[in-house]
């Protein structure tokens, strides 16, 4: 039970692939100009990461040091290619926008890192959960980044969601009427926004840790007193 909690905490916060490990930044920064694009790429990454962890973990007994890496890359590349074809079949317009970066998921270090450092050493259940949580952590950061950049850059939120959810989702678009700042749409804006997100995460983590330390000190005090 505690293992499941630990994996969840690791993926979403403690060891978040984007904010802490700083992996997969190329697609993260390139695609995160709207929530719709972010959600698209994030979901594909999540699915591929979960499936590749599942398969790599289930084959871990068969593979040795020499065959592990090629096998992992092969599995990841297969899932990414399939995801790419499915995206073209069912979400063609979305694929027109993020297609280049879907293929690049193969080179997203998060996937290989999780395969090598976790999935190949843990049972299927935990490995799948790890893939899902790491993917979810990546997805959430992408959406957050996409949301901030869309609001700053275009003055809208949830624009173009019909690319994912069909025509009824056109109505989800919220126009804030604020002027768009070009910088937020351009790549430097992605770096600046991402830097702010990392800073915010570090600040929160530090505050939480000092809070814990203070609490520990307070509860320890009488003990020290007695001695």
């Amino acid at each position: 039970m505690s293992q499941i909690r630990q994996i969840t905490r690791d993926g979403l916060w403690q060891n978040n692939p984007a904010l802490v490990q700083l992996l997969g930044l190329c697609p993260l920064l390139a695609v995160s100009n709207t929530v719709a694009n972010s959600l698209g790429l994030g979901l594909v990454t999540l699915v591929v990461l979960t499936l590749s962890n599942l398969l790599i973990s289930s084959l871990r007994g068969q593979l040795n040091n020499a065959t592990r890496l090629p096998a992992q890359i092969l599995i990841i590349a297969t899932f990414v290619t399939c995801a790419d074809i499915l995206l073209q079949s069912y979400w063609y317009e979305l694929h027109q926008r993020i297609g280049l970066f879907v293929a690049l998921i193969v080179t997203n270090c998060t996937l290989l890192a999780r395969a090598e450092s976790f999935a190949s050493r843990h049972p299927i259940r935990l490995a799948t959960l790890d893939g899902f949580m790491m993917g979810l952590g990546f997805l959430l950061v992408l959406i957050l980044l996409g949301g901030v950049r869309e609001v700053l850059g275009q003055g809208t939120l949830l624009a173009d969601m019909h690319l994912l959810f069909g025509d009824s989702a056109r109505a989800w678009k919220i126009s804030l009427g604020t002027p768009g700042i070009l910088l937020a749409v351009l790549p430097p804006g992605a770096f600046i926004t991402f830097g702010c997100l990392i800073a915010a995460r570090n600040w929160l983590a530090q505050r939480y840790e000092t809070g814990l330390a203070d609490a520990a000190k307070a509860s320890n005090k009488p003990l020290i007193h007695r001695e």
Binding site: Q62, L63, N64, T67, A71, L74
Partner: peptide, 8 residues
């Protein structure tokens, strides 16, 4: 090993 990788 070769067989494994080929199969995969």
């Amino acid at each position: 090993l070769v067989l494994q990788l080929t199969l995969l």
